[in-house]
């Protein structure tokens, strides 16, 4: 490591501090390597040569922040991304969920909602959706709006359908959406079971007890301290025997909370609260 922080590192720290003070979004404990890359990609789009210039622009033209937020948080997902994760949910977790009279799931960092609807569809196919409520949270209001609208480009449907099939899908995906004007809209019966809400794993607290938390490819963007905070929230939100699902490269192995969980489906990163 370089002994002294580079000018760029200092500028980034100051930018994140400015964002926190001015907009109350806390990126100060994010993983630096990918944040650096995202900021580098954003700079030319804002006509800025340096991170300091971007900081000045943000402070003096606060409307810029929403556009920057899209660069800092953009996340790409698909319905039933990593089908084996959803297949494991269906086969190794749903049978347990049947024993509950009512169910709550929390999709943390839901971005534009693809995974939220994936869970809703599986729960409907398994006859559990009627007694389920899904909390879908994110820090990006624009992403949340898209998630709530539940409309995806028609071109993406065939990939979604293939994933759905690999995840053990029981009906054609077309049963859950209507296509018009180049968009596929998820049916109202699914959307009615989801509460979309602004929530930050960096600054907010637990809001409900839930039986399942799914938080995939969100923790990879957090540095260790923030990961620990987020997993702490999940630990608090889950009762004993509750389930936590992570992304395929994410692990509790290096977490101080690892002893609060046991591996439930190891290869698909499903953990169980103990």
């Amino acid at each position: 490591m370089n002994p002294a922080a580079s000018a760029l590192d200092i500028e980034i720290r100051l930018l994140l501090e400015a964002i926190y003070l001015r907009f109350h979004h806390d990126f100060r404990s994010y993983s630096m390597a990918s944040l650096k890359r995202r900021i580098a990609v954003a700079l030319p789009r804002f006509g800025c040569e340096t991170v300091s210039a971007l900081q000045a622009k943000l402070l003096h033209e606060p409307d810029t922040f929403n556009a920057l937020l899209q660069y800092l948080t953009v996340q790409v997902s698909d319905m039933f991304r990593d089908p084996s994760y959803f297949r494991a949910f269906r086969e190794k977790i749903v049978p347990d969920l049947r024993t509950y009279p009512s169910l709550k799931l929390w999709v943390a960092g839901c971005s534009t909602g693809e995974e939220v609807y994936s869970f809703a569809i599986i729960l409907d196919e398994e006859g559990l959706l009627d007694r389920t409520l899904i909390y879908a949270t994110d820090i990006n209001p624009e992403a949340l709006q898209k998630a709530e609208a539940g409309v995806y480009a028609v071109e993406r449907l065939s990939a979604f359908e293939e994933n759905h099939r690999l995840a053990g899908g029981k009906r054609p995906l077309a049963a859950y959406c209507t296509t018009a004007y180049g968009g596929a809209a998820l049916s109202r019966s699914l959307r009615a079971k989801v509460v979309f809400s602004d929530h930050s794993l960096a600054t907010d607290n637990v809001f409900a007890e839930v039986q399942v938390v799914s938080c995939r490819n969100v923790l990879i963007y957090f540095a260790r301290a923030l990961q620990d905070r987020a997993v702490g929230l999940f630990k608090e939100a889950l009762p004993r025997r509750g389930f936590l699902g992570l992304g395929s490269k994410e692990t509790l192995q290096f977490s101080p909370h690892m002893h609060a969980f046991e591996e439930h489906v190891r290869d698909d990163r499903w953990y169980r609260r103990c």
Binding site: M1, S31, M32, A33, S34, R37, R38, V74, Q75, V76, S77, N217, I220, Y221, A223, R224, S248, K249, F254
Partner: peptide, 29 residues
């Protein structure tokens, strides 16, 4: 934590090196 030996990047994730000598991941474009 990064240790000696050969490390392959996983499919579908960017592999990054963090300044505390740990591996970082991203699913950016």
């Amino acid at each position: 934590p990064i240790g000696p030996g050969i490390w392959f990047a996983a499919p579908d994730y960017h592999l990054l090196v963090e300044s505390d000598f740990t591996f970082g991941f991203s699913v950016d474009e």
